[in-house]
């Protein structure tokens, strides 16, 4: 565990709270892609299946392999799952009337199918858990596509949405730094699958980061994209 990893997880956690705060404060989910949020619930569901194993060990008081890191990871996994499902729940119940589904036009199987095929071919182990974990890594890298398309179509984002996107995009960039740090300081095998996917994921936010920093520099309230 290192400072880059901890700050990455906290930035990721912040992204959930920014989005939930924005949806609750404005009582609206306008400009937020439901499809991207749905993809994130699928990402965490496929990635954190080992939760059942860890929780099973805890309720049977088998603490032999439970380390502090495992506790931290378990706590964060539960938080991430709860937050992402809550967001999807909010968008389909309380805030359904404000949903932007008409403009949320990205075709999901364009990312689901390639990720599933890639996970079956390029994985570390051909086991259900590992293939689902790998699928979640690939899917998370492109899950932001529907949101980016919606943002481009809208042409601009209010400040909270842009801070949300910065947090979601920034956390994986910090994970890349964490991997470099671990590679340099630990006998750590660099998981090239997570590396490449993490790099693609961060790159996808690239032009968004550019407009975000331009907005910060120019002190604009809303993020403007070239229409």
């Amino acid at each position: 565990m290192n400072i880059f990893r901890i700050s990455a997880d906290l930035l990721h956690l912040a992204s959930f709270f920014i989005l939930i705060f924005k949806m609750k404060a404005t009582k609206s989910c306008k400009g937020i892609s439901f499809k991207t949020q749905l993809m994130y619930t699928l990402v965490f569901t496929c990635r954190y299946l080992d939760l059942f194993h860890v929780l099973g060990m805890m309720i049977t008081f088998n603490f032999a392999h439970i380390t502090g890191l495992t506790l931290y990871n378990t706590f964060m996994k539960i938080l991430f799952l709860a937050a992402s499902y809550y967001i999807v729940y909010l968008m389909r119940t309380e805030l359904k009337s404000t949903s932007d589904d008409a403009r949320d036009t990205f075709v999901l199987w364009h990312i689901l199918a390639p990720c599933a095929v890639l996970a079956l071919i390029f994985n570390a182990q051909f086991t259900i858990l590992e293939i689902l974990w790998t699928f979640s890594i690939y899917l998370e890298a492109v899950a932001v596509m529907p949101q980016l398309m919606l943002l481009i179509e809208t042409g601009e984002a209010d400040s909270l949405s842009s801070h949300y996107m910065f947090a979601v995009g920034g956390y994986r960039a910090l994970y890349l730094v964490n991997w470099v740090y671990r590679y340099a300081t630990e006998p750590y095998y660099s998981n090239w699958i997570a590396w490449i996917a993490g790099f693609v994921q961060t790159a996808l936010f690239g032009d968004f980061f550019y407009y975000y920093f331009v907005k910060i520099m120019s002190g604009d309230a809303a993020l403007k994209l070239p229409t």
Partner: peptide
């Protein structure tokens, strides 16, 4: 063995 199926990150 770590109960987290070999992945110790989120």
């Amino acid at each position: 063995v770590s109960p987290e199926s070999g992945h110790d990150e989120l």
